[in-house]
Design a protein around this nucleic acid. Structure first.
Lengths: 239, 239
DNA sequence: TGTACATCAGTGAACGCGCGTTCACTGATGTAC
DNA sequence: TGTACATCAGTGAACGCGCGTTCACTGATGTAC
């Protein structure tokens, strides 16, 4: 009983080594993705770079797909942790909703800029034939929950919505299973979705290089969009 | 002189055949991209599907990269033509700026939904190591020009901009080489960029399947975002 | 209208390459008594 | 403390596969006189 044969027991040196090699494999995988994209990920190439032979990697990952799944899951975990940390920053409790949203957005942008390929592995072109495991949908829900919390803390949007905005609010009121029981009213849900899609829109075009050669600073565009989101669609919403 | 040896002369039967086979190769290429993604594009596989041998394709495309370039260029041309046609619709001259923007946005969405892989080939994860030819930057400029025209025709945004929005306007006023001489003031440039990034944000997340399982209708989200763009950031802007 | 020639689409063999994955194995590390 | 055994990381050979690309060629199509 105290023999530490239980699966969650203290890690043995061998376990420690395994975890370390697994991590090293993933690091090399990220480097390779950065250089040649996710679909060009090659186990043999990774092994070569690590001074090992290809088959050795099968001790650590059952297949190429399993490795990709681990990378995707790690990426999701990383962005979710980044968002959670930003929303729970030391001064978050004293901060206004607007400041919290700004902090969250900046954290997301910095995360994306730190490793664009990691961002695209999640939010970019879907890898054909690849289906994400269920874990990531849970992590994605964590991100949505944080986003909803922050948006709920924003000052209410005082002005009236446009017809299609109001229509979407009405629709959301009846299709909000995804909010996992969050008490926010439909306009807040819509605002959270707007935060997601607008920040992604500006960020992904920037990362993909669509603004290069246009001359303006993508960061300022991001800030301007964020400004609009913080202030709400109507100026009355300004606190 | 009249011997039609000039390059732009009437197409001979052989030229016609060449063009037809080239088109057929590209069609099969698109099918393959739809199934396995752009990076898995294989000349041999295309040839097989066409009942030919691999080397035969080298009569039509000098290399795999040349084929991809042709696909990218075609995709850009197609989306640009779609936008141009939408902006120049028969009733466009009588239509309000708001209606023209709606028409343009809907045309873009339909174009994207008709072939998501084509959309992602342009706006998705950059193909690593691939650099687009200069043609496409010219086509991209055409798209921006249409967008600027339509946005310039919108009723002015009556309300005052937020600090970061105003800051970006000031920045744009000094970094507008990309507008190719369009006379619109900076706020219009900003609005055009917002149209681009917001529609792309909603559209790309929808196409990538990030909304599946959330229960709401992505089209209504698109409409709501479009609503906000048409009405401007301030309600005073409503015509 | 008919013949000689040039053009060029497509073939088949071959090149070297890298891939994912399996399998039987060696040898080092850790465990049990 | 020492010996016998089990575990397991990593190797090397092999599997079948598909890839992009080249090359010399065949045979049909079109052109010129």
């Amino acid at each position: 009983m105290a023999r530490r044969t239980a699966p969650a027991a203290q890690p043995s040196p061998r376990d420690r080594y395994r975890a370390q090699v697994r991590a090293e494999i993933k690091e090399h995988a990220w480097e390779q993705i950065a250089g040649s994209g996710a679909s060009a990920l090659s186990l043999n190439a990774i092994a070569r770079r690590m001074g090992m032979t290809g088959p050795a990697l099968y001790r650590y990952f059952g297949s190429r797909d399993e490795l990709i799944t681990a990378l995707v899951t790690d990426a999701y975990r990383s962005v979710a942790d980044t968002c959670l940390a930003a929303a729970a920053a030391p001064d978050a409790s004293h901060a206004s909703g607007a400041d919290r949203l700004r902090t969250l957005a900046h954290a997301l942008r910095n995360w994306a800029l730190a490793d664009p390929h990691r961002y695209f592995l999640i939010y970019g072109t879907p890898v054909p034939g690849y289906h994400a495991p269920e874990d990531v949908t849970l992590i994605a829900a964590e991100i949505m929950a944080v986003l909803l919390d922050v948006c709920a803390a924003l000052p209410a949007d005082g002005g009236e919505a446009g017809p299609d905005e109001a229509g979407f609010d009405a629709h959301l009121a009846g299709h909000r299973e995804w909010d996992r029981g969050h008490p926010a009213p439909a306009p807040v849900l819509r605002r959270a979705l707007a935060v997601w899609t607008r920040l992604h829109g500006a960020l992904s075009l920037e990362l993909a290089g669509h603004f290069t050669g246009m001359g303006f600073d993508p960061e300022l565009l991001f800030e301007a969009e964020l400004d609009g989101l913080v202030r709400g669609t109507r100026p009355d919403g300004v606190q």
